[in-house]
Simulated assay, not measured.
Amino acid sequence: MPRRDLLIRFAFGFGVSAVAAVVSAGVGPFEGGILLAFPAILLASVTLVAKEEGLRMARDDARGAALGTLGLLAFAVSAAILLPRHSAWLALGVATAAWAVVSLLAYGVARAVGHGGDEPPPKR
């Protein structure tokens, strides 16, 4: 991987982490911690994919990240509700199942409404 690409990814990751630190100091660790869940590397990765492989691939990567984020949100909510009241094994097992179900449902809905097949095929 070229050094420039690594520097871009590092800069995006650093930027998001720095914003999370400022928010943590100003508002609180819970709010700042939420920002750390942001896939900082995604911004740099999508930019690099668009440059090297085209907009279609970058769009697919961004779409997949958005759908996966919905699943991670389901995981976080499930874990936050269940961990204080149940064993870690049960809570994390249910949270993982919630992640899988929500991510797959989101993917199915996206495909059903035509997303993911809306771009013209790549030129050869």
Rank of each mutant, 00 (worst) to 15 (best):
A40M: 15
E52M: 01
G68R: 06
M1K: 07
V113W: 02
W99Y: 07
G71F: 00
A98G: 07
D5V: 05
L7K: 05
L55D: 04
F75R: 03
L90I: 03
P84N: 09
E53C: 03
F38T: 15
V109M: 04
G117N: 13
G116A: 11
L82V: 06
V101Q: 06
Y107I: 10
G28T: 01
I8S: 06
S78K: 05
P29T: 06
G68D: 13
V23E: 00
F14E: 02
A112Y: 00
I41F: 01
F38Y: 01
I81R: 07
V49Y: 09
S24D: 02
A112T: 05
L83S: 05
G114Q: 04
A112R: 08
L48I: 14
A110I: 14
A21D: 08
A44S: 14
D5M: 07
L104A: 09
W89L: 12
D60N: 10
S17Q: 07
G32F: 01
A98R: 03
V22W: 10
A97I: 15
G108K: 00
L92G: 03
R56S: 12
V22R: 12
R3S: 07
V19R: 06
V101A: 03
S24Y: 11
L73Y: 14
V101F: 08
W99Q: 06
V16F: 00
A50G: 12
L55K: 04
E53V: 08
A62M: 07
L72Y: 10
G93Y: 07
R59A: 14
M1A: 02
D60F: 01
P122M: 13
A79D: 06
G64I: 07
L67V: 08
S87C: 11
E52A: 01
A100Y: 08
V19A: 10
T69P: 00
E119T: 12
G32E: 00
A40I: 12
I34E: 01
L6F: 13
V101S: 02
A95Q: 02
A91H: 13
G15F: 03
V113T: 06
G13H: 02
G33M: 04
G93N: 04
R9S: 05
P2S: 11
R59H: 12
A98M: 05
I41S: 02
